[in-house]
Write a protein that binds this DNA or RNA. Structure first.
Lengths: 345, 345
DNA sequence: CACCCTTTGGGAAACGTTACCCACAGCCCG
DNA sequence: CGGGCTGTGGGTAACGTTTCCCAAAGGGTG
């Protein structure tokens, strides 16, 4: 085996010559386009197989499509994304489209770099998962390539959206805890100051959902929200703060599983037991929430469904770029585990 | 904002006209190529900025490079990969290269699809992380594009490799346990039958390392290996089997953290305590190993370093495709936590 | 001062594919 | 039997960039 053999690749011209037809004809077969008889198709396909021809995606992109879909992923570590991704790739595996992931790096600048790179490569469509970029940037991207935004509330005429109902998810937790008898239910949120992001980011919607659900249960006075960040450390600090309250909460609803991990740590340090003294719930139903030693009550977003819908919407929009924008909202489900129980007497 | 405005993009021709030079000149500036005076460069760069020009990667690829690096990731869920990825993207963020991830889907077929797609898109180089494909396929890929293989032992003249020393990692654990006083140390491995994979796959190397280390300590008779798979269930089943032994092991070295999770579950079910009755160690130092309630002793592979090296080797090979292949081997470190302690008296 | 080399710049032909349009044959219909 | 469809196939000009080459100008050298 040669180190990187310089052998010329088989091109459409070679296929055409071998099949004794024009390159136009081969191109038509490749794209399943109109204007080729069944016999012609058969002949061309045979030539393709015999020569082992594969089209050059870049060259195709010069005139037509690249058959490439870009998925912007802000943070690969987030154990919730793989589900979405499976949904996307699953929907696309029977098509000609190939999915590539762009590491977003969790910042506006990194996100911009990736989306620009995708546009430079003329990807046919882009799926942005839980982007942190301002809406104007999303719209700018969407104005030059078909785009679906996942996990941002708020709609735009230029891109489609798929979200899980975070308000509903927050209620699921609050109702579950209240159903067990809890009244002093506290919440740890990810601090959000920017007004449009308060309206669009899932973390803010979860906090809103918490407040709404508490009020609906007549527990308005027990509303207690600590603002930190969606990290383990944020959970730890938030819990420390809650544990310093004159009257301790009997349950903590952390806005994300990873936050709940910090809470569990702080609670253990304080010498309290879970769920004996305090119940803890997270959000996202991440892999580790299910692990035996943790067994964290959480909310499952239908990740697979989210991905499937995003892929579907994107294909539709690639097919018809001027169809009106669509918003899909899915419902989460509660996954009760061993970190929540009746409050102490 | 128009839905997907049809506005023509700025091309190199526009830039040339605006700067009153030839397209050749602009191209030279873009590539930092020889044959452009400083004044010329300045003039062209200004025009580029004024027009907001961005080169079309596909068109570039037709003649030259695409400035795109593909990273094949077999399983996004593996919490060890993000570290490697950070190392890669970190090394590349000051270059013109853009990284895209191809979801490998943990199977030969899926891996082949992704690598072919990368080649079809004329990516300048490919990094394959822990591929499961047979070596012939790796060499085939490497023969058409510069390639670095991460996490496969065994070298090839056509691709570079970066591995962490799994034999050494296994010793770290065995020595650690023996140092605490354990003698009956069992191991749960991922079953591997194919002979070349036994030599190349990390899981097989870990099992070998375990045996070697046991023999080196004079514990050859206590060698006890159970073959299941690197999954939580595999750990659970493996542990069940070990717990049915007439003389229980006092420590279990699971070949991966996720396996250790299954072990912890089985041990808890058996009414035994960790590390009181039995010590448990994993491998990979995944995120959840560090979580408070778990606190699993593990082995840390220098993921970041692995990624940095892979990126460096790839750039070198892109620059000189016929330089001899290089193998980099890094050393892991032990991360002792609360699941390992002295054996019961 | 003739010659050659170096520096700077540009013209034009690739690169591999698709879009656009035209030609031709066969057929149906009035 | 003429006119207009429909189905089939191909010629050719894009698409946006880089590479290969050549030309001209300037400067050093014998």
């Amino acid at each position: 085996m040669e180190p990187s053999a310089p052998s010329r690749r088989v091109t459409i011209v070679d296929v055409a010559r071998h099949a004794q037809v024009s390159t136009t004809a081969v191109s038509k077969v490749l794209r399943n386009a109109y204007g080729a008889s069944p016999e012609m198709r058969a002949k061309v396909r045979r030539a393709i197989d015999e020569l082992g021809y594969r089209p050059h995606a870049g060259a195709r992109g010069l005139r037509g499509q690249t058959y490439t879909i870009g998925v912007m992923l802000p943070d690969i570590r987030n154990p919730f994304f793989p589900e979405i991704l499976d949904g996307i790739t699953g929907s696309l595996e029977d098509t000609e489209y190939q999915v590539f992931l762009g590491p977003g790096g969790n910042g506006e600048k990194a996100e911009a770099r990736v989306t620009e790179a995708m546009i430079d490569r003329r990807m046919d469509g882009i799926i942005m998962i839980a982007p942190v970029s301002p809406r104007t940037h999303l719209e700018q991207v969407a104005s030059s390539v078909p785009t679906v935004v996942v996990g941002r509330h708020g709609s735009s005429p230029v891109y489609d959206t798929v979200v899980d109902d975070d308000v509903e998810g927050a209620s699921l937790i609050v109702d579950h805890l209240a159903g067990l008898g809890h009244r002093r239910i506290a919440h740890i949120e990810h601090r959000e100051t920017d007004p449009t992001r308060r309206a669009e980011m899932p973390n803010a919607r979860r906090a809103d959902g918490y407040r709404q659900a508490m009020r609906a249960l007549g527990l308005a006075e027990s509303i207690d929200v600590v603002s930190t960040s969606y990290t383990q450390e944020g959970g730890y600090k938030g819990a420390k703060e809650l544990l310093a309250r004159p009257r301790l909460p009997t349950a903590v609803f952390a806005g994300a599983d990873i936050v709940a991990m910090g809470v569990l740590e702080a609670v253990a340090e304080a010498g309290l037991s879970v769920p004996g003294d305090i119940s803890v719930a997270g959000y996202d139903n991440t892999t580790f929430a299910a692990l035996g030693p943790i067994s964290l009550t959480s909310v499952d977003q239908a990740g697979h469904e989210i991905g499937r819908n995003a892929a579907r919407l994107l294909l539709e929009r690639i097919a018809d770029r001027r169809r009106p924008s669509v918003q899909v909202r899915l419902s989460p489900t509660l996954v009760p585990r061993r970190t929540t129980a009746r409050p102490p007497e």
